[in-house]
Design a protein around this nucleic acid. Sequence first.
DNA 1: TTTCTAATTTGCAACCATTGCTAATTAGCA
DNA 2: TGCTAATTAGCAATGGTTGCAAATTAGAAA
Lengths: 140, 140
Amino acid sequence: MRSPEELTTAFRAAGLKVTPQRQLLFRLMHNNSAHPTADSLFAVASQQMPGISLRTVYQTLTDLTEMGELQAIEVGAGAMRFDPNVSDHHHAVCEVCGAVQDVYVNEAPELRGLDGFAVADAHIVYRGRCASCSAPAKRR
Amino acid sequence: MRSPEELTTAFRAAGLKVTPQRQLLFRLMHNNSAHPTADSLFAVASQQMPGISLRTVYQTLTDLTEMGELQAIEVGAGAMRFDPNVSDHHHAVCEVCGAVQDVYVNEAPELRGLDGFAVADAHIVYRGRCASCSAPAKRR
DNA sequence: TTTCTAATTTGCAACCATTGCTAATTAGCA
DNA sequence: TGCTAATTAGCAATGGTTGCAAATTAGAAA
């Protein structure tokens, strides 16, 4: 996803308005590698802008996704996750803490069983334990 | 998933009852490659057993999944799909008709970016057009 | 075969993530 | 500064799924 400044220009150029709500969300998503859900982003946004509505968060995330600035991913954890990294990559989901991290593969695997199916896109979801959840328990 | 007969034995052995509802669902899921949702299975089941409840369909699918007889898959199409093929495989989802088919890969791809993550499982979802949806339009 | 009881089924309410709708507000051009 | 289309907020509604409680029933035991 582009920077808040670039998005501001892009939105205006597309005839869309740049509201304080949108600017806040641009900032919160930029370089955000937490793969937040709409709801968790709403929680953070609410601290900085009390009164912002969950509806607006959903709306803006959808708009950004349709503009290709965000990737919406489904990792089988109920809610949709939003990722400002729109490069070709995959995801690893920790089964303990739920954290999602970006993963890259060197080349797509060879397939068997496709039978005339024209693949447009492939997405891999890895499940397991992230580094901190597989580390031996430390005192805290 | 095992045959209805084997499941009957397995259920009894586990102290579970084999009801007519369960027997019907065993039969409907056995060798079922349609990757049905709970709701579509309920529709089929209702024809053969009017009055069966959607709740029971969910319950039985969940039980079978927990017993390892079914695989529950999430292909990003709203509802969960259930697959009696519990071997190690992946899925191809047609973006036109929504059909899901099983796909096998020769070997898992090499990963970058994992950073201490211990992978337990990987699932690939391919999107594209299935054979019949990419075929040139025929009169019907 | 009958009895008994824990397992199961049903129906419905509740839940969660998300979207539809609409009145009120506002960005930003003229 | 005014105007108007875009946006926001709030709430209702949706779809998929689960929780709950009362009624029913499979199947072991008598």
